[in-house]
């Protein structure tokens, strides 16, 4: 039995999860929520994480009914993400690892999402659509590496949604994306927006500029409602995502799709992907907000895989990075294929 605790805090969520051989024992989380019209800034987000991290850690241990002595390994998010919050969380992870005398393992955030999705859904070898506030990638595993087949060439899909929410002052509680999803259900009129797919890549910045410019004018002149805009934006963005996923599947000959990342809990996206899969005779795997949105258990799970395959991170190497180490050449995570 191997018990791994995972620390995640690369963006506005701080989560700590404990996993014992594929079983999630606890996974508490807090979210830093900003007022409507505002995004989260690194230093303020780090301050939020510092204020709650020890409480969350205590909750994680209590809910799992474990003591530090039961933990075999401490996993933390190495990156990519926002610098200040990553540093805060890494510092706590390093400290407890030394206090408890346990090895550390630094985990790539993206791999955390993919590994958690595979654990929860039991997807075997899926084409993965990873969509969140900071990432938009279509990933597949080939020749012993996770490889990116398609991605955004500018901003992430979640970032596009979040910034649109700021333009028309949609609440950030519980998240802008969730509120857009609810409003979109009441949208009736389809407003034409730019649609940009380049091969297996997508671009969202043009759509955002267009809607930032047009939204308030259209609302003021009653050409459409805020609900219509939410609806049209979702339909356009998600069609692009489903299209590049399908292209990657055709390219790789894959018959499984796994959606991970915060935007992945959007039910309309899941529904559209489901229709595409049905037409191709493929299978869709998706999870809910507990595991789609950033959480500690996903870092624990990827950490578990790495720890079991003998990878640990020595103290001098326990730095963080804002950038992705993911390149076209792929990222190796040995022992992760089953």
């Amino acid at each position: 039995m191997t018990v791994v605790i995972g620390f995640e805090g690369s963006a506005n969520k701080i989560g700590i999860g404990i996993i014992r051989d594929g079983v999630v024992l606890s996974n508490p989380r807090r979210t830093y929520i900003t007022p409507p019209g505002q995004g989260f800034l690194p230093s303020e987000t780090a301050r939020h994480h510092r204020a709650v991290i020890l409480t969350v850690l205590q909750e994680a241990l209590e809910q799992a009914a474990l003591t530090p002595a039961d933990i075999d390994c401490v996993a933390y998010t190495k990156g990519p993400g926002m610098g200040a919050p990553l540093v805060t969380v890494a510092l706590v992870a390093r400290t407890v690892a030394q206090l408890w005398g346990r090895p550390l393992v630094g985990v790539n955030h993206c791999i955390g999402h993919v590994e958690m999705g595979r654990l929860i859904t039991r997807a075997h070898n899926p084409t993965v659509l990873y969509v969140s506030g900071g990432n938009t990638q279509v990933i597949a595993y080939s020749e012993r590496r996770y490889r990116i087949f398609g991605e955004t060439i500018d901003i992430a899909v979640g970032n596009c949604l979040d910034r649109f929410a700021r333009v028309i002052k949609i609440s950030n509680d519980p998240s802008p994306g969730y509120n857009i999803e609810q409003m979109a259900k009441r949208g009736r009129q389809y407003v034409e927006l730019p649609y940009t797919v380049k091969g297996m890549d997508v671009s969202f910045s043009g759509i955002l500029s267009y809607i930032e410019e047009a939204a308030n004018k259209m609302l003021a002149s009653a050409q459409c409602t805020a609900e219509d805009l939410c609806f049209s934006l979702q339909e356009t963005l998600f069609s692009m995502l489903v299209e590049i996923t399908e292209r990657a599947m055709a390219h790789c000959g894959s018959q499984e799709v796994l959606i991970v990342g915060g935007v992945g809990c959007n039910l309309r996206l899941q529904e559209m992907m489901g229709v595409m899969c049905e037409e191709r005779g493929a299978k869709l795997f998706a999870t809910d907000e507990r595991f789609c949105i950033d959480n500690g258990a996903m870092i624990a799970q990827a950490g578990w895989e790495m720890f079991r395959s003998g990878q640990t991170t020595a103290l001098p190497d326990s730095w963080i990075t804002q950038r992705s180490e993911f390149t076209s050449a792929g990222l190796l995570l040995s022992g992760s294929t089953s």
């Binding site: 990519p80 993400g81 969140s132």
Partner: peptide, 10 residues
């Protein structure tokens, strides 16, 4: 250098 290679959050 654009997109995730410049900075990446989330």
């Amino acid at each position: 250098l654009r997109g995730r290679k410049r900075s990446m959050v989330g």
